[in-house]
Design a protein around this nucleic acid. Structure first.
Lengths: 247, 247
DNA sequence: AGTATTCAAATACTATTAGTATCTAGATGC
DNA sequence: GCATCTAGATACTAATAGTATTTGAATACT
């Protein structure tokens, strides 16, 4: 089928690094799905590898282990928070509790994804905190979230606020995380407007009900990314990785 | 050694329910230690049972499984939050980040316990949320925390606050949880005074720096109990359960 | 009192899974 | 076109939650 030299078949015959990058990508995609569906501990590396069309060897060849694989998935999700381009106002506020809202089908799906991945992240945080190396890696990721809120706090705070910006940013980030926990544990009923009201109180110290528009900008920077971002991430990834020799 | 009938040996020969209660107690104690040390997934039922002086069969005879055992430990910890007798002002504020403070030895130890058990609880929340039955059980426990804050919010809020009490209570509970997450992930540096300042902003909507005394009362109702409570819980439990036939 | 029953806990076993050690075939370098 | 190198496959180990079965001491019954 190919009388010429090897250079003429770019489809099947790829460079080694190309293939490996493709493998990484496929594994991350399968891992995102599996962690979301089954949780961090619940997801098995065998499943992930098989779903991606590879064997477990591929996982250990590309990542240090389960934890590093998860960090790679998390990084993929956190990308949007890095850098100044992120605008908190863009975020939709369906992050909290919208299990039966009026969201369109695809977004509903994304919300389910979000919920699942949020749980997995929580699980990972609790696990990683016991390991020094992972703990440090995690700290950096949490810092990304706090930094995102810091940018919001810098522009939105009152000039006479006695609290340092960094403190306010941390409080806002904490509220964000806490809302996620309440939502994920199914106990809370904090919706977007209420969360904004809470953030506003932390930021400006003014009372006001949930329906007022946000004063300077604050919404969902959480480690658990918002629905829109998740939608993008999902559609980003290759659905079906290249078929592979199974045996 | 005992010429009389069997009724005269109350030490070795106990009623069946007595023994079982003792077993439950010992298992809960060992489980608290193990979960704290190794996390929810990291702790093994074999270890817990052996540490308590029993075999795994005792666990499954007394509890439905690992999850139910954890819930029993959690309930033991949450007891203090139930009922109106709990006063948030009593709580010490070393819950957040006091890894190297000037705390006395025993309290330092308790703080380590607290940290570990907090992580385990986080892990459990993330896991339990995937199971309908556990999810419901967990929801009830989270509600205990929110209720505790609700009592604080009822007495501490301003009469003209446009937000409903329940909303404020949830926001405060959320901040509490979030602070725990940041602390547990090692990224945050929110101490007691700062947390109180945040809670005050949520409660009264007034600005003010971290050093002001709390306005109406608010501190640490978290699912992750405060240090003092943990100390009590630890000393509550029997250190060494009754020796048992190992084989 | 003595015998039958019950059930807390022990023992034995299964299935699953993270991680490791080894191997192989296809890509890369000369 | 041959030697090397490595991504990924295969085979194996150790650990552990849960299940099935067994046992012996406490209870109930006569």
């Amino acid at each position: 089928m190919d009388p010429h030299r090897s250079t003429s078949t770019p489809r099947t015959r790829r460079t080694r690094t190309e293939r490996q990058l493709e493998t990484r990508h496929a594994l991350i995609g399968a891992a995102l799905a599996a962690f979301t569906r089954d949780g961090y501990h619940g997801a098995s590396l065998d499943d992930i590898a098989n779903d991606a069309g590879y064997s477990k060897g591929a996982v250990y060849s590309n990542f240090g282990g389960k934890a590093e694989l998860f960090l790679a998935v998390l990084d993929h999700n956190l990308e949007a928070l890095r850098g100044d381009s992120w605008d908190p106002f863009e975020a939709v506020d369906s992050r909290a509790t919208e299990p039966s809202g009026a969201l369109p089908q695809s977004t509903r799906e994304a919300a389910a994804y979000l919920h699942g991945f949020g749980l997995a992240t929580l699980e990972f945080i609790a696990t990683a905190a016991r390991d020094d190396t992972l703990s440090q890696a995690l700290r950096a990721r949490v810092q990304v979230m706090v930094d995102a809120y810091r940018r919001v706090a810098v522009s939105g705070r009152r000039p006479d606020d006695p609290l340092p910006v960094d403190d306010v940013a941390q409080l806002m980030a904490a509220l964000d995380q806490g809302v996620s926990i309440l939502a994920l544990s199914g106990a809370g009923s904090i919706d977007g407007p209420l969360m904004r009201a809470g953030l506003r109180r932390l930021l400006t110290g003014t009372t006001g009900d949930a329906d007022e528009p946000p004063p300077a900008g604050a919404d969902g920077a959480s480690l658990l990314p918002d629905v829109e971002r998740v939608r993008r991430l999902i559609s980003d990834l290759p659905e079906a990785p290249p078929p592979h020799h199974t045996s």
